[in-house]
Design a protein around this nucleic acid. Structure first.
Lengths: 229, 229
DNA sequence: CTATCATGTTACTGACCGGTACGTTGCAGG
DNA sequence: CCTGCAACGTACCGGTCAGTAACATGATAG
C-alpha cells in the first residue's frame, strides 16, 4: 500500500524559530543605527562580514548547499552573531537577494541611461553585457532565478524577493517594448524576458561558447520582427 | 582576519561511500534480470517503487530538498532497499534524470513526427505544447535545468545527465535551424534554446499568465526574422 | 565608575543527513 | 524436507542541519 496522500504536502512556507525577531522589521536585518549619533562608527561589523560571505557563497554554491556553520566560519564570527543580526537563515538568504536586487537594477539602469529615449538600444546594450558576463568561467546565472528554483514553496522569504524582482523586470520590459512601438508589446516584452532567463540558465549550463553568447543578437532579431508587424 | 582561501573550494564532484557498488554499472541501477530466466517475475519491486516516488518528489520539491528517509517512507520500503538498488542518493537522482531524458525526447519526437520535413512546424508544435504545460498550476519547470541549478559542481552525476541532455538539444535545434534554411543557423538554434529555457524558468516563476505562454509565438517571430536575413 | 552595547565563547538541542552491519523472511530447486 | 539464495527489515553509525541558552569580554559614553 502506498503511503502517499497520508502526509500533508506543505506548499506554503512556514517560518521556524525566533518568532520575536522575525517581527521586528521586514528587511530581516536589524537597523544599523537605532539612535542618531555620530555616524562614524558602524558598530555591527559582524553583520556586514556575514552578509558579504553569505552573498559570495550563496551565489556560487547555492543557498541550500551552504550551511550557517560554514558562513560564520568563513566570516570569522560565531553563530550567535549571525542570529543576532538575522532572524533565520531564510531571512539571511532574503537579505542576500535584496542586495542582489539593488545591484541588478544598477546594471540595468546603467544600460538604460547610456541610450536615453532609445529603448531598443537600451535592451541591446543590457543584453550585450549579460551575454559577456555569461561567458566568464565562474558564471553562475542569476541569483534570483536560482533561488526560485531552489525554493519552489510559495511564500518563502527568498522566493518572495525573487518573484518581486522578476515581476518588476517583466513590467519594465513590456513598457520598453511599447515605447518601441511594437504592435504586440506584451508579447515582445515577454519574449525578451524569455531570452534573458534563457541566457542566465544557459550561461551556467553550457559555460563559455554556449548559446547565451548570442542573446543580444537574438533579441535584436526578435525586436526587428516584432516592429515590422 | 578573513579565513577565505584557507579552505579548498571543491568545484568537482567527489563520490562518497559505497565504492564497490559505484563501479558495477554506470546506469547506477543494478540490472533487473542478471540471468536469463522466465521474465514473468519482476523481483525487485522495491526499486521500481523507490524510483517512482523519487521522480515525483525530486521534480516537485527539488533534489536537495528531499531526503532519502522521506523517499523510502513514501515508497513503503526501507533504506537498505534503496541502497541495494542504487549506489547513492546522487546516483538515484541521476536515474531520475535519465528517465526524465527518455520522456523528454518522446515528447520532442512526437512534435517532430507530427510535421515530417517541416522543421519550423515541428518547433512551433513542440513549443505550443511546452507553453501549455507551463500554465499548469503544478508546473515546476524542466527537471534537467533545475538539477543543474541545484548542483553547480562539475562532474556531479545528476549534472552530467543534465548537461548531456542540453548538449543534444542544442545540436538538434541548430540542425533544425539549418534545415529551415536560416542564414545563421547556429544563432537561430541557440535563440530557440534560449526561449525554451526561458519558458521553463518563467513557467515556474510566474505561474499561469506568465511570459512562458508566449514562447511559441516568440519562437515563430524569431524564425521569421532569421529566415528573411 | 558604571551602564550599555556589540561581540565572543562554550555548550547544547532535537531533528535530519546519507549510508551500513547484520538479522529475518519467504520462496524455489534438489 | 532441506538447502540456499534473494529480497527485505531492524537498528544503528558519525556527522551536519538550523537554532539557542548562559555567560564573558572589551570598548564606548555619560
Amino acid at each position: 500500500m502506498l503511503l502517499t496522500g497520508t502526509l500533508q504536502e506543505r506548499e506554503t512556507y512556514v517560518p521556524t524559530g525566533n518568532i520575536v525577531n522575525q517581527l521586528i522589521g521586514r528587511p530581516g536585518m536589524k537597523s544599523i543605527e537605532p539612535t542618531i549619533k555620530a555616524n562614524d562608527a558602524p558598530p555591527p561589523r559582524a553583520a556586514e562580514r556575514i552578509l558579504q560571505v553569505a552573498r559570495d557563497l550563496f551565489y556560487r554554491q547555492g543557498i541550500r548547499a551552504i550551511g550557517v556553520d560554514e558562513i560564520v566560519r568563513r566570516a570569522g564570527v560565531t553563530k550567535p552573531s549571525l542570529y543576532r543580526s538575522f532572524p533565520s537563515k531564510d531571512e539571511l538568504a532574503a537579505s542576500y537577494l535584496r542586495h542582489y536586487d539593488l545591484e541588478f537594477w544598477e546594471r540595468f539602469d546603467e544600460a538604460v541611461n547610456a541610450h536615453p529615449g532609445d529603448p531598443r538600444a537600451q535592451i541591446v546594450a543590457f543584453l550585450t553585457r549579460v551575454g559577456k558576463r555569461t561567458q566568464r568561467p565562474d558564471y553562475r546565472g542569476c541569483g534570483m532565478t536560482n533561488a526560485a528554483v531552489e525554493y519552489p514553496e510559495h511564500g518563502h522569504p527568498a522566493r518572495v524577493v525573487s518573484e518581486a524582482n522578476k515581476q518588476e523586470l517583466r513590467r519594465r520590459l513590456r513598457a520598453m517594448a511599447a515605447a518601441m512601438g511594437a504592435g504586440d508589446a506584451e508579447t515582445l516584452g515577454d519574449g525578451l524576458l524569455l531570452l534573458i532567463e534563457g541566457a542566465y540558465i544557459s550561461g551556467q549550463l553550457f559555460g563559455a561558447g554556449g548559446p547565451a553568447q548570442s542573446v543580444a543578437r537574438n533579441a535584436d532579431l526578435l525586436i526587428e520582427a516584432s516592429l515590422k508587424k
